[in-house]
Design a binder for these strands. Structure first.
Lengths: 157, 157
DNA sequence: GATGTCGTACTCGGATATAATTTGTCCGAGTGCTTCGGG
DNA sequence: CCCGAAGCACTCGGACAAATTATATCCGAGTACGACATC
């Protein structure tokens, strides 16, 4: 039950991209966050495939948000990077062993799977209500100076 | 973001134990569920360490619930088997790189970590409100015959 | 016949290999800017 | 001076290793029951 570390990196990158005005190259994001450039590139590719960020090639290319920061939720990023398969996978134990239940009696998921699904649903609902814009707003409120302006300035240099 | 398969086995075993009247040996639980006996033993040991089940050695020994089925939540079992460390671990990226935040400005978790913590809290609250007794009740309601009685009968034989 | 003792078979517990997933890295394909030559 | 094309440097994208974690297994320590010899 461990989430990929790339999720954290991706979310930070998305916040940075929401503040940027021009495309940002992957190696810039890696330097800014002090993480392995090649591995971060892998995560960004996943974000690109999911349609969260758009990639521009060539000189002065890089990544930018494909949608408005208010239209991308944290859940979108998590699913893109970490995969959208549920954490708990029911292997239908009830249909195995000497007291196996008949398949026709198993139209609904078992009680355990239902409980897990409810829990994951609650988890997703929280993440689905937080957008990148919300995160950026919280980051701005957390510190004294204008952090986002500082990032924009650093990206330009 | 994948939960250990042992969690599912452990929960099924706990439901069985809540229906049993005498200690149940690990190999019986493994046979009943058709899972590798040695690996299931590992999970049961974790449950024992967590104080969820009590082990009795010697002939006619085995495992039984250490507490009442109404006093053990699904969250307890998940934490015992899968570990109680949170899925998302903040590596404090904000304190790294050229624009690192000063440690004295980082008294609170960052916005991303806060969001993830809220989501995991919601997840835990759902699992914390479901007890083994609730699961057993749902299982009984799901099927026609008295499944728990059938399990008791099979365990006795 | 009652009782103490020994043996045995069964139990759990932790230390130990194997497989899968995550993490980390590299090089090739593609594209836009720059520069150089010609008109 | 303006225009065109070629070169080039920079970008992303997918294919390829290493480390960590989950999975699976084995054997040893401990205990309750049962049998047996003795009193």
């Amino acid at each position: 039950m461990k989430m990929s570390a790339g999720v954290e990196w991706s979310l930070h990158c998305c916040v940075v991209l929401s503040a940027a005005t021009e495309p940002v190259a992957a190696h810039q994001l890696a330097t800014l966050h002090d993480v392995p450039p090649a591995y971060l590139a892998k995560q960004l590719q996943a974000l690109s495939r999911a349609g969260i960020v758009a990639a521009a090639q060539g000189q002065a290319g890089g990544y930018r948000l494909a949608r408005a920061a208010t239209d991308v939720t944290v859940l979108d990023v998590v699913r893109a990077v970490d995969g959208d398969s549920p954490a708990f996978v029911c292997t239908e134990i009830r249909q195995r062993g000497p007291l196996a239940a008949a398949p026709r009696d198993c139209t609904r998921p078992c009680a355990i799977a239902r409980t897990m699904a409810r829990a994951e649903q609650a988890w997703r609902e929280v993440l689905g209500t937080v957008t990148l814009a919300d995160l950026a707003g919280e980051v701005s409120a957390d510190y004294q100076g204008d952090v986002l302006a500082g990032i924009r300035n650093w990206l330009g240099a």
